[in-house]
């Protein structure tokens, strides 16, 4: 999700300042330039960041009072072929690294619940909406998405089945199916059903890698982290 903040980058201009916690927009380390004074004000790259050192640096430069400017005409191309394993590693790594950066920048202990904005609408900046920001004895960041609802409902279905409760199982089943169908329908192109199914499988794999990475990264930081990619 903090990755998704990059989605506000659709036209040249200043990146918006943070509105919630550590939801700062950021520049990926692959294509960024700094004024020397800004880097010096922010300090060294944090060696504790396995990945996400670019996110951390953008936050610090911004908080040191500097503006961040997005210039879409400055283009860099990857020439390494992308692989499925690389996709999983990338999202797992994002998940693993964000709880540390979150804890570092959010300040007090809070449980924050977010909902992703409409990522499909590319004419508007990407937004993550904070639905609840609660005092909490631990750091927590939970995203609500169809992906999570589907899995919660599947868990409820399993429990319902084990408890031999047909009504509970049926309700959980209907919820799981609805959430699953909604999740599958996002950007599904009926003209290309096979390709859409392939894309769906990859999105599911990326989401799962991200959720797994963030859960584990959260545990390491003694925080509850349940994230979602920018799909809803």
């Amino acid at each position: 999700m903090i990755i998704d903040i990059t989605h506000c980058r659709f036209a040249p201009g200043y990146l918006p300042k943070a509105t919630h916690g550590f939801f700062n927009p950021f520049f990926a380390g692959v294509n960024v330039a700094f004024r020397r004074e800004a880097l010096e004000a922010a300090g060294d790259y944090d060696p504790k960041c396995v990945t996400g050192e670019d996110v951390d640096m953008s936050i610090r430069v911004s908080r040191a009072g500097w503006e961040l400017w997005f210039e879409p005409a400055a283009v860099v191309r990857h020439h390494d072929p992308r692989t499925f394993a690389g996709l999983l590693r990338q999202w797992y790594g994002y998940g693993l690294s964000t709880p540390y950066i979150y804890k570092k920048h959010v300040g007090r202990r809070r449980l924050q619940i977010y909902r992703a904005g409409d990522a499909a609408d590319r004419t508007r900046p990407y937004r993550a909406r904070c639905i609840a920001d609660l005092p909490s004895p631990f750091y927590g960041l939970v995203f609500l998405s169809a992906y999570h609802l589907m899995h919660l409902a599947l868990l409820a279905l399993l429990i319902g089945a084990l408890a031999r409760s047909p009504v509970a199982s049926m309700i959980a089943g209907v919820v799981a199916l609805s959430a699953g169908l909604y999740y599958a329908s996002i950007r599904f192109e009926w003209r290309h059903p096979l390709r859409s199914l392939g894309m769906l499988a990859m999105r599911y794999a990326a989401d799962t890698a991200f959720v797994a990475g963030s859960l584990l990264g959260g545990i390491r930081e003694r925080a509850l982290f349940i994230q979602a990619t920018r799909t809803r």
Partner: peptide
């Protein structure tokens, strides 16, 4: 006041594999 400028990372070869499409 601009301390950092970021650009676009326009990927990903011309290949039409599913993974490149996904990216």
């Amino acid at each position: 006041h601009i301390g950092a400028v970021g650009g676009t990372t326009s990927n990903y070869g011309s290949s039409d594999t599913l993974i490149e499409r996904y990216y």
